[in-house]
Design a protein around this nucleic acid. Structure first.
Lengths: 151, 151
DNA sequence: GCCTGTAATTTCACCGTCGTGACTTCGCGA
DNA sequence: TCGCGAAGTCACGACGGTGAAATTACAGGC
């Protein structure tokens, strides 16, 4: 799992499937800043890591499902660390402003049976796949993918 | 399951747990209008049915979970009819702008396993319970509840 | 039957969020 | 050194409400 590569703002937006202005807005409002290099005035460049791409794609998925940005902010404030590790078979479950990453399907079913109110469920494996596919398609020249270490 | 009773705007807001202004806004923007009597100029009165209360509470739950109003509008445009029947053990599953009401737990688990992107899951039985409880607590004088016909 | 008080609806201006377009700046690589 | 591409700025627009004042239907009292 090398991927020490970093991505420009523009490419990042393309890979993740959002507008550049949106990425910019998120960076300036502290939702997610580029981990590799932040901007510091016009002329400087932001650099996003592969991890960032993953987080961005999760955010994008949540927005696409109709969640408001504000909730997404809450979720990420509370759980950013949890996303680091291997993600392939995990699920993200959001319950209002609380959220959990479940590692097994059983755990998920358990939560669903006991859960109250609305639960928002996202399969993280799919997110990773989409990001990887987008990188291959949109990122000419570099084949330094995380190459499905765990399925 | 009598409940031919209707509820004023103010009481409806109290029972459902939203502000009157919000209920008003939803009515005038066509998200949900009172079924028993719509307003037609100031001085007139809106009258909501028990069914309306149920729908409103579903909407409220969805909003509380962080969904934007717009998505909720889509969902309801697409599925209002489905909510009529007995609700006690059903689940509402939203996938982007598509949505389904599942009648069994197995069906739900199935959808979760095959589903892509984010799934928003709401147990409808809980919604009904909350509405009934709120009516009892906030609606002095009338004990004409649907009295748990099916569990 | 008429008048009046009250409670509900309307209206209107205003606020915060989530962007967006377009133009300006300016650092950095060639 | 110079141009390009990326970041910054600013004004603007839609959405989702909200507070407060203005309207007005309707019920109760006389």
């Amino acid at each position: 799992m090398s991927t020490s590569e970093t991505y420009s703002g523009k490419r990042t937006a393309e890979i993740v499937g959002i507008t550049y202005r949106q990425l910019d807005y998120w960076a300036r409002t502290d939702l997610i800043r580029p981990s590799a290099a932040d901007a510091s005035g016009s002329g400087t460049r932001r650099r996003y890591t592969y991890q960032d791409l993953l987080e961005l794609k999760v955010i994008k998925s949540l927005l696409d499902s109709g969640l408001k940005l504000e909730s997404v902010r809450d979720v990420f404030a509370y759980l950013r660390e949890q996303l680091n590790e291997d993600i392939a078979s995990a699920n993200l479950v959001i319950n209002g402003s609380k959220s959990v990453v479940t590692r097994s399907g059983d755990e998920l079913i358990d939560i669903l049976q006991n859960g109250q109110g609305v639960l928002n469920v996202l399969a993280l494996g799919g997110v990773k796949e989409e990001v990887d596919a987008a990188i291959v398609e949109l990122h000419p020249g570099v084949s330094d993918l995380p190459t499905a270490a765990e399925a």
